[in-house]
Amino acid sequence: MTALVPPPSTSGKGLLDRVEDALLPLINLVFLLLMFFIVAGQLTEQPLPKLPSSTQSKQEQAPEADLIVNADGQWKVRGATLTEASLLSQLPEPDSSNPLKIAAEQSLTMADLEQLLRLLEDGGYTDVLLLTEPGA
């Protein structure tokens, strides 16, 4: 009867020696890559060129918000301060292609913003954009 599995090749080396021989080219490759990045990444005396900052590319006019929220929680639409009862009637109709734009002051608490977002969600507004100012 013949064996279904051929006998292992016996080159006189053990399993550990064969694994070490297979890893040697990989170690050489990693070493060469390391040397390449050391040489290619030399620091130069020339500083990097300045990238354009957001202050240079400021828009002439800020985007117009449908609703402005002050830090004390006041809601303003077209300059008029509104209450919770009159807010939804003064805002534009909910439209999925044109989301409601909200501009909130930086010091507004998350609790006040969450209260406003819940009120808007109850009013049918599913898409809202929160306008922010770029950091200085």
Results as ranks from 00 to 15, higher is better:
residue 30 V to Y: 09
residue 29 L to A: 11
residue 45 E to T: 14
residue 59 Q to D: 15
residue 111 A to Q: 15
residue 79 G to Y: 03
residue 45 E to M: 12
residue 9 S to A: 09
residue 49 P to M: 03
residue 128 V to D: 04
residue 107 S to R: 14
residue 115 Q to I: 00
residue 67 L to V: 01
residue 4 L to T: 02
residue 17 D to I: 10
residue 32 L to P: 04
residue 116 L to V: 00
residue 129 L to M: 08
residue 9 S to W: 14
residue 108 L to F: 04
residue 92 P to G: 08
residue 115 Q to F: 05
residue 39 V to H: 11
residue 32 L to C: 09
residue 109 T to A: 03
residue 109 T to C: 07
residue 2 T to Q: 11
residue 131 L to Y: 07
residue 38 I to H: 08
residue 135 G to V: 15
residue 50 K to N: 08
residue 125 Y to H: 07
residue 122 D to C: 02
residue 53 S to D: 14
residue 37 F to E: 04
residue 110 M to S: 15
residue 125 Y to F: 02
residue 59 Q to Y: 13
residue 102 I to T: 00
residue 98 N to C: 11
residue 43 L to A: 14
residue 16 L to Y: 03
residue 37 F to A: 11
residue 8 P to N: 02
residue 35 M to A: 12
residue 79 G to R: 09
residue 34 L to K: 01
residue 122 D to Q: 12
residue 117 L to V: 08
residue 121 E to H: 10
residue 115 Q to Y: 05
residue 130 L to M: 02
residue 90 Q to S: 10
residue 37 F to I: 06
residue 47 P to N: 04
residue 123 G to N: 05
residue 46 Q to E: 10
residue 15 L to C: 10
residue 33 L to D: 01
residue 34 L to Q: 04
residue 87 L to S: 07
residue 7 P to S: 03
residue 34 L to H: 06
residue 17 D to P: 12
residue 135 G to D: 15
residue 21 D to H: 02
residue 95 D to R: 01
residue 62 A to L: 12
residue 49 P to W: 11
residue 57 S to H: 14
residue 101 K to L: 07
residue 22 A to R: 09
residue 136 A to H: 08
residue 8 P to T: 02
residue 37 F to N: 08
residue 135 G to A: 11
residue 53 S to Q: 08
residue 13 K to N: 14
residue 29 L to N: 14
residue 77 V to T: 09
residue 123 G to C: 09
residue 45 E to F: 15
residue 62 A to W: 06
residue 110 M to W: 15
residue 67 L to K: 03
residue 113 L to G: 06
residue 114 E to H: 09
residue 121 E to W: 04
residue 22 A to W: 15
residue 29 L to C: 08
residue 25 P to K: 03
residue 20 E to S: 08
residue 19 V to T: 04
residue 24 L to H: 05
residue 9 S to D: 14
residue 1 M to T: 13
